[in-house]
Amino acid sequence: MSERPYIVGNWKMHGTRAMLAEARAIDRAAERLIKVEVALAPPFTLIHACRKEATLIGIGAQDVHPADGGAHTGDVSAAMAKDAGAGFAIVGHSERRADHKESNALVKQKAEAAIEAGMNVIVCVGETEDQRDEGKAEDVVARQLAGSVPTGEELAEKITVAYEPVWAIGTGRTPTVDDIGTMHRHIRGKLVDMFGEAGEAMRILYGGSVKPDNAAELLAADEVGGALVGGASLTAESFLGIIVAAAETEDD
């Protein structure tokens, strides 16, 4: 795994220019917390402004369209996101998969488009509560990895995987640390199968109701290389609590 934990805030459909103050505060704190790699994915409308205001942290897009351009009203291509200042793109988030019926194949096309545009990608995978209760969680995640993640050893350093149990996102519920470690080890094995030795170094983030008060425990789980944070990333105070917890895991 990467030496530094990777903590990424996903602002989802939140944020006006007033929230640039939060981005600035996070950026200033990141200068001190050098043991952690920090990034934010604001809405498209704030990518350019966040990139100007926050120069030390990563800034990314929450999604991209797979096409370079064309008659796709309301969509944003990877090249457009990159031009606005995005250095990475999140693809395949469970909310995109559920709300917009995105297939594994479409997620892979988006990831490929982002990489072609010069960005890194965070590819999200995760099972629903019913799938976990039916004992299908690992099979579901394996299929998502196989269908959603572009392959090629040279691509490994451009790809991060985020495991987000769908039933834990925004619900306040979290899997046990053992459950998280088991799934992350499963993902690691699949990445090694897909990428060979390069798969050993790929980062696997955990996403699902990560908060300052549970971050240390979750980040200590086996094969967890960071966190994809939703609601707790909307204010500098709560997001920095998670970043500090990540930094402290490096001291242990």
Results as ranks from 00 to 15, higher is better:
Glu3Ser: 15
Arg4Ser: 14
Arg4Ile: 03
Tyr6Gln: 05
Val8Ile: 14
Val8Gly: 02
Asn10Arg: 13
Asn10Trp: 08
Trp11Ser: 02
Ala21Met: 10
Ala23Lys: 02
Ala23Phe: 01
Ala29Ser: 14
Leu33Phe: 08
Ile34Met: 12
Ile34Val: 13
Val36Asp: 03
Glu37Cys: 02
Glu37Asn: 12
Val38Phe: 05
Leu40His: 03
Ala41Phe: 03
Ala41Lys: 01
Phe44Asp: 05
Thr45Gly: 03
His48Ala: 15
Arg51Ile: 04
Lys52Tyr: 11
Ala54Ile: 11
Thr55Leu: 13
Gly58Arg: 01
Val64Arg: 06
Val64Asn: 06
Gly69Val: 04
Ala71Phe: 11
Ala71Glu: 13
His72Thr: 04
Thr73Ser: 12
Gly74Asp: 01
Asp75Pro: 01
Ala78Gly: 10
Ala79His: 13
Ala79Tyr: 07
Met80Asn: 06
Lys82Thr: 01
Asp83Lys: 08
Ala84Asn: 00
Ala86Gln: 04
Ala89Ser: 08
Ile90Asn: 04
Ile90Pro: 00
Val91Asn: 02
Glu95Cys: 10
Arg96Ile: 07
Ala98Asp: 12
Ser103Lys: 15
Ala105Glu: 15
Val107Gln: 01
Lys110Ile: 03
Ala111His: 05
Ala111Phe: 05
Glu112Pro: 05
Ala113Val: 04
Glu116Thr: 14
Met119Pro: 02
Asn120Met: 10
Val121Thr: 13
Val121Pro: 04
Ile122Leu: 15
Val123Ile: 14
Gly126His: 08
Thr128Met: 10
Glu129Ile: 14
Gln131Ser: 14
Arg132Ile: 06
Asp133Lys: 15
Glu134Asp: 15
Gly135Ser: 14
Ala137Thr: 06
Val140Asn: 12
Val140Arg: 14
Ala142Trp: 08
Gln144Pro: 00
Leu145Ala: 11
Gly147His: 10
Val149Cys: 09
Gly152Thr: 09
Glu153Tyr: 00
Ala162Ser: 13
Ala162Met: 13
Tyr163Met: 07
Glu164Ser: 12
Glu164Asn: 13
Ile169Cys: 12
Ile169Gly: 11
Thr171Ala: 08
Gly172Ala: 08
Arg173Asn: 11
Asp179Glu: 15
Asp179Leu: 03
Thr182Trp: 07
His184Arg: 07
His186Trp: 00
Arg188Val: 00
Lys190Gly: 04
Leu191Asn: 01
Val192Phe: 00
Val192Ile: 15
Asp193Leu: 12
Asp193Glu: 15
Phe195Met: 11
Gly196Arg: 09
Ala198Thr: 07
Gly199Phe: 02
Glu200Thr: 06
Arg203His: 02
Gly207Gln: 08
Gly207Tyr: 09
Gly208Ile: 06
Ser209Phe: 02
Val210Gly: 07
Val210Phe: 09
Lys211Thr: 12
Asp213Leu: 10
Asn214Leu: 05
Glu217Leu: 09
Leu218Met: 14
Leu218Thr: 03
Leu219Phe: 00
Ala221Arg: 08
Glu223Trp: 04
Glu223Gln: 14
Gly225Phe: 00
Ala232Thr: 03
Ser233Asn: 11
Ala236Tyr: 00
Leu240Ser: 04
Leu240Asp: 00
Gly241Cys: 09
Ile242Pro: 05
Ala246Ser: 08
Glu248Tyr: 06
